[in-house]
Amino acid sequence: MISNKILKNIFLAFLLSFVLSACATQTKKVDSQMQGDVYTGTDTVEYLATGVPDRVFFATNESVLTTASRDTLRKQASWLRKNPDITVVLEGHADERGTREYNLALGERRANSAKDYLMTYGISSNRISVISYGKERPVDSGSNPLAWSKNRRSVTVKAN
């Protein structure tokens, strides 16, 4: 049993390394910017202050925050606590691979999931407003999985 399992794992590892090495370098680059289908790169990211990224990314049809997203939002929360006069708008977005109306709702859900997290880190709800743009305002106009991953986002924008 045990040896079977080990054999299977070795086989899988072998298969995986074979598949990976067979991939072109281009694909590797793309992979390094996505985990699952969540964007992990920094191409489109802007900064609210040094070390405070302005946006978080989501998986297809999801509004769940990833570990990286929660990390970004904690940085935003601490920046907001240090700057109590600043108010923000959270702009929720979807990729182009969904119906327009559903995507408006999805963008709103994503922005709110970021808002809820900021609130649990002590930011008052009256400092945060939310707007959804659905799929209307992509940052990347390409029609490919990497572009879509950059577009599934919630962006924190200074409102004052």
């Binding site: 509004s63 109306e101 408006l104 709702a105 709103e108 859900r109 922005a111 709110n112 999931s113 809820d116």
Partner: peptide, 9 residues
Amino acid sequence: MSFAKDGNS
């Protein structure tokens, strides 16, 4: 129509 509030439509 739909009305979206607090992440729910």
